[in-house]
């Protein structure tokens, strides 16, 4: 693996499978009475969050602590960022404090790339969501969840039918998942109203559909995306009620899903909008498992990025 994890494009198929395999082993080890491993003792992981987050930040924090790393949480609110400090100055402060890895979430696409390429810091940069661009660890944990939900496939994703439904336009989760699932050979269908599909979607390795009901019975995985009201500065659909009726996962659609298929959602959910409460809490739902799997997956990423000799020292 490279020094950084910025995009699923940075990872080869083999590296992705290595992350999933490592996550599976780590999950086994940490399911025992002692959850803590000494592997990253003395390393410092900084969670640099310019946007709000519950799951991702807590997940990275838990993962780093289970590997005995020191964790510093930084959120833009209540920091000097609100006084107008730039990303560069913030980064240089973290460098001076000796951060070994920076987990960054930022509202601007490309912020993680900027931090990694700028030369401001020597730490490994892990993208925890940048604008509407990518969220690679979410895609990795989703793939880990899928591989656990279909144990008979033994980690083989070939021909797995995945529907990703909803606000594709604003979704970094969808972008990372599409890239990752294509590398593993799954068949992805994006389902959304035309206004919520990005320009240039025909160049993505996916099928698209405007009709959720068309082939609902064929999917092994139905991944619902959150309607990102905070990024909606335009009218993308007539009303929430109409959206919910045409693209929401309600009980009727849940009942039509294939035997053994699963429902996923990266969270946070708008219950009653893109997913009904009954669907979110049904036996098909692996939404809570996704959260637990996130910790194992992020432990694997932290271990693979920080566990060995730093790349900077290999080259020197």
């Amino acid at each position: 693996m490279n020094n950084h994890l910025l995009s699923i494009n940075d990872l080869s198929r083999e590296e992705i499978l290595n992350v999933l395999g490592t996550a599976a082993e780590l999950e086994k080890i940490t399911s025992g009475p002692t959850k803590k491993l000494p592997t990253l003792r003395g390393r410092t992981v900084v969670n640099l969050f310019f946007e709000d987050s519950t799951r991702t930040r807590i997940s990275f924090e838990t993962a780093a602590k289970r590997l005995s790393a020191d964790v510093i949480n930084f959120s833009a609110k209540g920091s000097s960022v609100s006084k107008g400090e730039s990303l560069k100055d913030t980064a240089q402060t973290l460098q001076a404090m000796g951060a070994d890895a920076v987990v960054i979430r930022h509202g601007s696409s490309g912020a993680a790339q900027r931090l990694a390429d700028s030369g401001w810091i020597s730490a490994s940069v892990i993208n925890a969501g940048d604008g509407t661009h990518e969220h690679p660890t979410q895609a990795l944990l989703d793939a880990f969840t899928m591989s656990k939900s279909f144990p008979e496939r033994n980690g083989d994703f070939t021909g797995l039918k995945v529907a990703i439904v909803g606000d594709i336009l604003h979704s970094r989760v969808a972008r990372s998942n599409v890239l990752l699932l294509a590398k593993l050979g799954a068949e992805v269908t994006l389902i959304a109203p035309p206004t919520l599909l990005p320009v240039g979607i025909d160049t993505w390795p996916v099928r698209t559909s405007y009709d959720f009901d068309e082939s609902l019975e064929s999917f092994d995985v139905v991944m619902m995306l959150r309607i990102q009201l905070e990024r909606m500065n335009n009218f993308y659909f007539p009303s929430e009620r109409e959206y919910s009726r045409r693209y929401g996962l309600n009980e009727n659609r849940l009942l039509r899903m294939k035997n053994g298929s699963i429902v996923m959602h990266p969270g946070p959910m708008n219950r009653g909008l893109e997913i009904s409460a009954a669907s979110a809490d049904s036996s098909r739902s692996v939404i809570v498992d996704q959260v637990g799997n996130g910790v194992s997956t992020r432990m694997a990423v932290l271990y693979l990025l920080l566990g060995g000799v730093p790349l900077s020292e290999v080259s020197s």
């Binding site: 082993e25 080890i29 592997t39 990025l305 000799v309 290999v314």
Partner: peptide, 20 residues
């Protein structure tokens, strides 16, 4: 598997985890 407990982790590239 003892990989996560090795004292020479920082001397080599990350090792793959083996089965416990």
């Amino acid at each position: 598997d003892i990989t996560m407990h090795r004292d020479d982790l920082r001397l080599r590239p990350p090792r793959p985890l083996l089965s416990t």
